[in-house]
Write a protein that binds this DNA or RNA. Sequence first.
RNA 1: GGCAGGAUAGCUCAGUGGUAGAGUAGAGGACUCAUAAGCCUUUGGUCGCGGGUUCAAAUCCCGCUCCUGCUACCA
Length: 529
Amino acid sequence: MSDVFYISTAIDYTNGSPHIGHAYEKVLADVIARYQRLKGKEVYFLTGVDQHGQKVQQSAEKEGVHPATFVKKLTKKFVKLWDLLEVDYDGWAETIDERHKLCVQKILTQLHEQGQIYKKAYKGHYSVRQEQFLTDRERNEAGEFGPEWGEVVELEEENYYFRLSEHATWLKDFVENSDDFIIPSLRKSEVLNVLDRAGENDLCISRPKARLRWGIEFPFDPEFVTYVWFDALINYISFAGYQASEEADLPEFEKLWPAQLHVIGKDIMVPAHAVYWPTMLHAMGFTDEQIPSLLVHGWWNLKSKDGGTEKMSKSLGNVVDPVELAEKFGVDAVRYYLVRDIHTGKDSDFDVERLVMLFNTELANNLGNLCNRALNMTKRFLGGELVAGEFEDESCAALRAKLPECLERYTTAMDSYKVSDALAAVIEYITAANIFAEQHRPWELAKDEEQKERLASVLNHMAAVTAHATVLLNPIVPTACERLRAQLQAPHLADLKLADLKWDILPVGHATAKPKPVFPRIQLDKEEG
RNA sequence: GGCAGGAUAGCUCAGUGGUAGAGUAGAGGACUCAUAAGCCUUUGGUCGCGGGUUCAAAUCCCGCUCCUGCUACCA
């Protein structure tokens, strides 16, 4: 097991603009990566784009540009979005990268030499329009290939195959016996079910150049390029430095592998990530312990607002553009919503009103306001300087006791990637501080000179909880936490590790900045929708 | 067809045998340091439908309905 927390996401296909699903996966992975850094772990976070393939080739042809040009334009969109959403990755995988190509070719050569890859001819039904072979699944109820396929002809074609079937028994054992290959475990049965009834067929991994030019060439047969499996999936190791030359400027593979986690969507779990990928690694000689776990997340479903003919028909009617969302509501609101209102592994319905509601209630009202009232009273009643205060009673002790309680819940949840639960724990903690304020009514205490110690103590407690929250929420809403730290005039909190999160992280005699709302409430116009 | 997951308060969801929960929305209240925020009280549920097991079922068993997804050579 390596010391580095290596986490990857699926690489996105550069044939269309990024949507909310892409954004969710990257933000989720980023939150996990930032949490691990908060724990003091060294992290390597890899994400990127899948740029080869037929659809890209076709789209480029349609626009009359070279696929490389086409792909660069779309890649830029993804990079820009990750920038906007504060997705802080360490490695960037582009499958047109020469280093990736070399790695793929090395692997192909080795497996070919080991007899894991062979060539054979296949004859079947081929759709000329779609430029693909058709399977029985493509047949309609009448058992025919429908008009959507255009002209269907019988065609024979030679291709290279990977001996998938040879490893079927191993794979089944592996999945059955591993506890954490699939997270959450409820999806494990889905994989096992698939494995049960399959295993006789090998995997076609090439396309003749006559059909597909935009891919990585087979090193031992220039008439063929690799199909997606032995291209996109390889990114997880190629960009981690697998078999890389010294001048490649890639990480040291041995330090990274195995990856802790491949973060993927449920749509690509079977067959790609739960069948092909482990089998490929196994064939390459990796041991069972060197096969990474899959964190399989659900989807944000887009529902149409009912009650009439919404502008649904237009192809964009349903699309929620993450760029627009971030520009409109801010990065914090979007990041917060994407991991707050879904249980990792499950689906959720995307709803802008809930995005606004969660931002307003939990961040603005609860946390933002706690910070604001604490600092405002500190300024008005104490001249802007937090003082320890000699006062102590049961409620003070009870509030302080909530920190370790919250930490426990937070880490337990985050360690099992349940970000939503972790956030709930933090929010409860903040609420406790607000209740605490009502109990002591510092605005009343300020009127009585004899209550000065108590006033100082109470305000100090409130500010402390705010400070703790900035540490705990930093993985989720980093920019907001930066603003909070600025308000508290406590930039040192940015470097604080989880283990150092104690009650007294704000020094005695600490001066705070002028209070100003960190989370301005979002007002949603009626017309939005 | 098979398999998996889901169906709980207006909304989003927790809850796996013992008097139905949270957040939010709605209603009322006391307060005022604060981003009309915060705090207190409170109205909402035949827990998809029908059977069964049990002293006791949202929770276990059987059947059904609806939703979602998957069903490894997209050669």
